[in-house]
Amino acid sequence: MSIFLSMGGYGWYVWMAYGVTALVIAVELLMLRARRRRTLVEAKLAEPEMPVTTRSSLDPAGMA
């Protein structure tokens, strides 16, 4: 395992390249998820007619 991690002495370069790539991809995915959630909430708030009764998220009728 440590042989694998050392990458024949090039571990710093290889893992800095792969690590930062993984990090920025993770950041993009998290930001995308946050944006998706935020936009859905905003869409809910901007509904043409606000329903007075909020359906429980457990209520399957709300899905229909």
């Binding site: 944006r35 869409a43 043409p48 998220s57």
Partner: peptide
């Protein structure tokens, strides 16, 4: 692009019929 569509179409009636929007409890 789905998030962008939701942002841009805010207030459109088809949006409020989406299951993921109806399911939301705000």
């Amino acid at each position: 692009v789905r998030a962008i569509i939701v942002e841009r179409e805010r207030g459109a009636s088809w949006l409020s019929h989406l299951p993921e929007v109806r399911r939301l409890v705000v």
